[in-house]
Simulated assay, not measured.
Amino acid sequence: MSIQETPASASDPILDPAAGPVELTRQLCNIHSVSGDERAIADEVEAMLRRHAPHLAITRDGDTIIARTELGRDRRVAIAGHLDTVPINNNLPVRDETDPETGAAVIWGRGTVDMKAGVAVQLALAVELVAPAVDVTWVWYDHEEVASDLSGLGRAMRNHPELFAADFAILGEPSNGTIEGGCNGTLRARVELHGTRAHSARSWMGVNAIHRAGALLARLAAYEAERVVVDGLEYREGLNAVRIDGGVAGNVIPDRCCIEVNYRFAPSRSADEAVAFVRDFFVDADAVEIVDLSPGARPGLDAPLAQRFVAAVGQEPTAKLGWTDVSRFSALGIPAVNFGPGNALLAHADDERVPVGQIESSFSALRAWLSAAQEPLAK
């Protein structure tokens, strides 16, 4: 897709960076941005940056915005967040509430956790920090909540690889305002069992493929997933059936049963090793088709640059147990972590809500780290 250079909107702006990251979160959430319909929010983000951040070189690829400082620093950090959300379910516009469990002030509504609060922190800092201690590549992208091959981040990386060179990357996924290193890999496979059709009144004439699946499902249920320590962080694996189909009619012995399985694997395993494990686990199946595969990412906390970020956040990092786009940065050889306000367990929930205090603390920690100009950040 070609680069689009879109002029700032002539209409009244929706996004006001001077209002700060908390109010920006409200403003961002109230712009319709369900996956596949991100044009309006991408337009608003670009317009805001062109109005308020002349220090940034802006490139647009579809509904992905890339904004870079060009200060000649000896290190560069990429900081990214996605603009889209899962579908709305009577949970917009956002509203201010008190969390029933903690008593904390929260912003309630779709996208507050995943991940408009993280995007708001990034946008506020992108405008404010004219001369950060490192060069920064800010990225806001489309199509994260859908199939991986539609990802705006993946597309932009393919179209403009030169814009993504960096020494370290931060993805604003919700992490309760702490650092979550790397991520698990994920694999989906379709496992087929074959049989022979027959009339159900004469079942002995056939072979029931669904019955054949019973032993395989029992083995899956009995499987104990590993806990794997990678660079000091513990990742939990998982191998589970997530969908099953089979059968022909109410009076026919089925000749086919298909079980879809999802394998979440520690980043110490390569994608090829994950495939080999799944094929070996289902060696007695008639066919194993890998339908989706995304490698994990190691924690990315070895470099002094990352360690200074850990110090700025002030909490011990933990492992990211799901898959995130840090994997895309890791594939480019860029160590990457997840860091953003919000509890990932509330992502996509109808009562999605983010603590105001986490937005403010995430903003302060990231700002302090990027602003450390008096003490140049160590390599």
Rank of each mutant, 00 (worst) to 15 (best):
R298C: 03
D292H: 10
D272W: 04
I259N: 01
L301K: 07
A306Y: 06
E316V: 05
F309T: 02
Q315Y: 01
P267L: 09
A249D: 10
C257P: 01
S268D: 14
E316N: 08
R298Y: 01
A312I: 01
S268T: 10
P304Q: 05
P299T: 06
S268Q: 12
A274C: 05
K320I: 04
F277T: 05
V288T: 13
S270Y: 08
R264K: 11
D280N: 14
D302R: 14
A276D: 15
E260L: 14
V288W: 12
A287Q: 09
G250R: 15
D292F: 08
P254V: 03
K320S: 08
A319K: 02
G314H: 03
I259M: 14
A276W: 10
Y263M: 09
R256V: 04
F309R: 01
V288Q: 15
L305T: 05
T318E: 12
R298A: 06
D284A: 13
E316D: 11
P295N: 13
S270R: 11
A276Y: 10
P254M: 04
V288D: 09
D302Y: 03
D272S: 09
P304Y: 00
A319Q: 03
D284K: 13
A285R: 13
A303D: 12
G296Q: 07
A287F: 06
T318L: 12
R308T: 05
V252A: 06
I253T: 14
R279H: 14
D286C: 11
L301I: 11
R279N: 11
V313A: 00
V261N: 04
P267R: 07
A311C: 02
I253W: 06
L293T: 05
V248E: 13
C258F: 07
L301P: 07
E273C: 03
S294I: 12
Y263A: 08
R308A: 06
D280Q: 15
R256H: 07
G314C: 00
L305Y: 02
E289L: 11
E316T: 09
A297Q: 00
F277V: 00
V248K: 15
D292L: 13
A312T: 00
V261Q: 00
A303F: 03
